[in-house]
C-alpha cells in the first residue's frame, strides 16, 4: 500500500530539488538554511497549537546536518501533547511529514527536518538502542541472523546506527508497514 521513499535511509541530495530564484546572497550557508527550516517549521506548528488550543513551545536546533524541531511543554499536564504523538508515534510521523512539506513549500527544497514532541523520539531512541544491543549480543553469541519486529523509518535508523557502531551489518527487509531490521551474524573467523 505504501511505497514511500525512506527519507532517513536514503539521503536526498538537495541538488535534486527545484530551487526557486531568490534575491539576496547567491549561496546560503547550509547551517543558515537549516535554521531557516526550523523557523518556518516553528511558525507552522505554533499556529497549529494556537488553533487547537494546546499548550506548547517550540524548540529549534540543528542536529547531524538536519533541522531538529521539538514541541515541548512546561505545563503540568504533559499528557495534553500525547495526542500529537499517537499510538506508535503515528501522529508525530504524520505531523513531521506535513511540517517537512510546509518547509519545502517555502524554500523550494526538500527538507529532512526531524520533529519530536515532549521527548518522545529521544526516549524511544534509548529503548531502541537497548533492543539493538541485545540483538547484537545474540547475533554474536549464536552466530545467526537476528530479525527484529517491524519498525518505522526513524526506529530502523536508530537500530542500523547502533549495529554499525558495533561493526556488524544490518539490513531492512519486508514492505511497510512490516518493514523490519535484520542484524546479520558476524562473518566466521
Amino acid at each position: 500500500m505504501t511505497n514511500e521513499t525512506n527519507q532517513i535511509e536514503t539521503a536526498v541530495s538537495p541538488a535534486d530539488a527545484v530551487v526557486e530564484t531568490q534575491p539576496g546572497p547567491d549561496e546560503v550557508a547550509p547551517s543558515n538554511r537549516l535554521e531557516e527550516e526550523g523557523e518556518i517549521a516553528a511558525d507552522y506548528l505554533e499556529e497549529l497549537l494556537d488553533i487547537a488550543d494546546l499548550d506548547g513551545d517550540i524548540d529549534i536546533d540543528v542536529d547531524h546536518g538536519r533541522a531538529a524541531v521539538e514541541i515541548v511543554t512546561e505545563s503540568e499536564d504533559a499528557r495534553s501533547l500525547n495526542r500529537l504523538i499517537g499510538a506508535d508515534g503515528e501522529v508525530l510521523d504524520a505531523l513531521q511529514e506535513l511540517t517537512r512539506l510546509a518547509v519545502q513549500a517555502k524554500t523550494g527544497e526538500r527538507s529532512r527536518l526531524m520533529l519530536d514532541v515532549a521527548g518522545h523520539r529521544q526516549a524511544r531512541k534509548v529503548e531502541l538502542t537497548a533492543i539493538a544491543q541485545e540483538a547484537i549480543d545474540r547475533a554474536r553469541a549464536e552466530g545467526a541472523d537476528v530479525s527484529l519486529p517491524a519498525m518505522n523509518p526513524f526506529e530502523r535508523k536508530v537500530i542500523h546506527d547502533t549495529v554499525a557502531s558495533a561493526s556488524l551489518v544490518s539490513d531492512s527487509e519486508g514492505v511497510e508497514p512490516k518493514r523490519h531490521v535484520v542484524v546479520r551474524a558476524p562473518a566466521q573467523a
Binding site: 504524520a94 511529514e97 506535513l98
Partner: peptide, 11 residues
Amino acid sequence: SGRTARALRTV
C-alpha cells in the same frame, strides 16, 4: 499514493 492526504487525516 495518497500519503499527504493520509497525514492530514491522521493529524
